[in-house]
Design a binder for these strands. Sequence first.
DNA 1: ATGATTTAATAGGGATCACTATTTTAATGA
DNA 2: TCATTAAAATAGTGATCCCTATTAAATCAT
Lengths: 211, 211
Amino acid sequence: MTEAIRKRGRPRALDRDVGLDIAARLFWERGYEGTSTADLTKAMGINPPTLYSMFGSKEELYRQALDFGIARETSRRSKILQSDLPIQEALSLYLYDIADGDTQPDKPRGCMVSTAVLQHAEENASVARMTAALRETSIQTLKARFDRAVEEGELPARTDTDTLARFYGAIIQGMSAQACDGACNAQLKRLIDIALTAWPGKRRTAAENSD
Amino acid sequence: MTEAIRKRGRPRALDRDVGLDIAARLFWERGYEGTSTADLTKAMGINPPTLYSMFGSKEELYRQALDFGIARETSRRSKILQSDLPIQEALSLYLYDIADGDTQPDKPRGCMVSTAVLQHAEENASVARMTAALRETSIQTLKARFDRAVEEGELPARTDTDTLARFYGAIIQGMSAQACDGACNAQLKRLIDIALTAWPGKRRTAAENSD
DNA sequence: ATGATTTAATAGGGATCACTATTTTAATGA
DNA sequence: TCATTAAAATAGTGATCCCTATTAAATCAT
C-alpha cells in the first residue's frame, strides 16, 4: 500500500510517511511558527526543493503532518469512546488515553493539536483556523457521544451536551498545556478523576462538602 | 510616580507604560514568536534603538509586558479569591472574572499567560520557562486558597488540594484556548458552572445520573 | 547503449529577523 | 550663549526566513 509501484525516473530518497513522521514530531515540539523549513529539511535529510516538491509548502506540510499524526491516535480513541461501555467509563478511558499521549517518554509533551497555534502572527491566521477546526471537530465528537448517552438514558434528557463536551474539551486542552509545562502522567490522571465527578443533574450538598 | 522628574537631555517621546501597554496587547494577540520587533516599534511609533534602550531586548520587553498586563488583573482577582466568601462562591466569581477577561470586546481573545509559548523554537526555551513559571504560580495561589479552605473546615481534611488546584488550572487554560478559538463569554460561564460541580468527597450515584 | 522520465542537488533570491554603531536633535545648567 | 547631557533618528549589520530557477543524477523502456 505504502510501497509505490516501480516507475521510470530517479527513485525517491525519502519515504513520504517517514517525512511526515519527522515533520509531525518537529511541529509537535516547536509549533508551526517555531519550526523552520531549514529545521524540517535538515531533520529529513533532504534539500529544500525536495520538501517543496513532496509537500507543496510549509503550511501544506503542516496540514499533512497533522493528519498523519492524528490518524495514528484516532482509531484507538474512537473505539474507546464509541464502545458499549457505560458512558462515564468510556469517557474515563478516553481521557486516560489522552493523558498517556500527553506524557509519552520519547515524544514531545502535550497534544499536537489541543494547544497548537493559539496565538499567531497575522500571516498565519489560516493555519490557526485549521487547528481550531480540528479542536472543534474533537468537541463535536464528544457532544455526539453525549447525545447518544442521552438517547440511551445514561444522561438526563435535559442535559446540555454541548457545554458538557466543551467542559471535557477544556480538560483535554488544560492537560496538554500542563503536560507542556512538565506535568507527569499521574498528575493528569488525578486531574481527570476530579473532572469525572462533574456531571449534570448533580448538586452539591453540605453533607457532601463536609466529607 | 509615573511622572519622571524633569532632567537634562532630550525628553522621552514615548511613556514607558504606554509602550508596555502596546507591547502587551501585541504579544497577547500574536504570541512571543508571532510578534516581531518591527511590529512593536511600528505600533509604538518609535525606531528600533529606542525600543532597545528602553526595554533591553525583545525577551526582556516580553517579560516587562507580561508583568504590566498581569498587574492590571491581579489586584481585583486576588481580592475575589482571598475574600471571606464561601470557597465555592469565591472560586466561582474568580473563574467568572477570568472568563470575562478571556472575552473582552476590544481585546485579544483568551489569556495572555494561560496559553502562551506552549510550543516554541529551542532558542526560546527561556521564554517558555518564564510563562510556565507564571502559570505554576497561579496554580499555587489556588492551592493555597484551597489549603485555607481545608483549615477553615470548608473542604474535607483529606482533600488533595494540589490536584484540585491543577484541575481548576486546567479549566482556566482550556477556557483561554477556547476563547482563542472563538468561544463567547456565555459558553465559558456555562463551562465553569459544570466545573464547579466537581468537588472532592463526592461520588456519583445512579440516582444522580438518572436525573 | 540511448533517450525519456522523474527526482535530487546546487545555488541563491528577496524579504524579514533581532539588533546596533553612529549621528542628530532637544532639553538643562552655568 | 554654549557646553553638557540624554534621548531619538539614520542607516545599516549578519543571520535566517520561505521558497525556486536551474542543473545533475538515477532509474526504466527501447
